[in-house]
Amino acid sequence: MRKTTTMAGDADAYGVIILVEGLSDLYALETLARRRGRDLDAEGVRVLAMKGATNIGHFLDHYGPRGLRARLAGLYDAAEEGCIRRGLERAGLGPGSQVEMEELGFFRCSADLEDELIRALGTDEVERIIEEEGELRSFRTLQRQPAQRGRSTHDQLHRFLGSRSGRKHRYGHLLANAVDLNRAPPSLDRVLAHAAGVR
């Protein structure tokens, strides 16, 4: 999997650039594309992790209409919609609603990537994957913490996936690799479909 997180100057080599918030999104998107039989490199599609939604302005300055004029798409968390919208507006792309953002190729996860993948797989399957990775005891320990008692298993899993550095990245790939393709998160499939349609 490609791990590029910086703004390289080779946009001409790619037909479409998909901007995502972090490496977990990048790994999940590339994993799902591969499972769909897509070769993003061959298609001229590049996925870039921005290291946070607040960095979108820098990426749009570089790749957007005032920079390299690449064809753009994106995936973002629901909580970051305002940040993404403001970045697109400042770059001269100017969407006003979520529908208009989707027309530009920017798609919102229902909460975030992890939330969508847990919903798609179901909590039992996510726990099975965690057990395969040798981390079920750590998850059980988290479940016993006072702040986690009384929360749903879904919410506990969501907290667990984000509770250690690097865990999100690893499970982004693992969960995307395990999800039934008929139940894959719609936002991931839609941004991949958009990228294919604007090449």
Rank of each mutant, 00 (worst) to 15 (best):
Q145E: 15
P146F: 05
A147R: 14
A147W: 06
A147F: 09
A147I: 08
A147K: 14
Q148D: 11
Q148T: 07
Q148M: 15
Q148G: 00
Q148H: 11
Q148F: 08
R149F: 05
R149Q: 15
G150H: 09
G150L: 08
G150C: 10
G150M: 07
S152Y: 02
S152N: 08
S152P: 08
S152K: 07
S152C: 05
S152I: 07
S152V: 07
S152W: 05
T153I: 12
T153Q: 12
H154L: 12
D155Y: 07
D155H: 11
D155N: 12
Q156T: 08
L157W: 05
L157S: 03
L157I: 04
L157Q: 03
H158L: 15
H158D: 01
H158P: 02
R159M: 07
F160E: 01
F160Y: 14
F160K: 01
L161R: 03
G162I: 04
G162Q: 05
G162A: 07
S163N: 13
S163H: 05
R164Q: 15
R164L: 11
R164V: 12
R164S: 13
S165Y: 11
S165D: 12
S165N: 13
G166Q: 10
G166W: 11
R167T: 02
R167L: 15
R167G: 00
R167Y: 03
K168T: 02
K168S: 07
K168P: 00
K168W: 01
H169V: 13
H169P: 02
R170I: 11
Y171R: 04
G172D: 06
G172Y: 01
H173Y: 15
H173Q: 14
H173T: 01
H173K: 15
L174N: 04
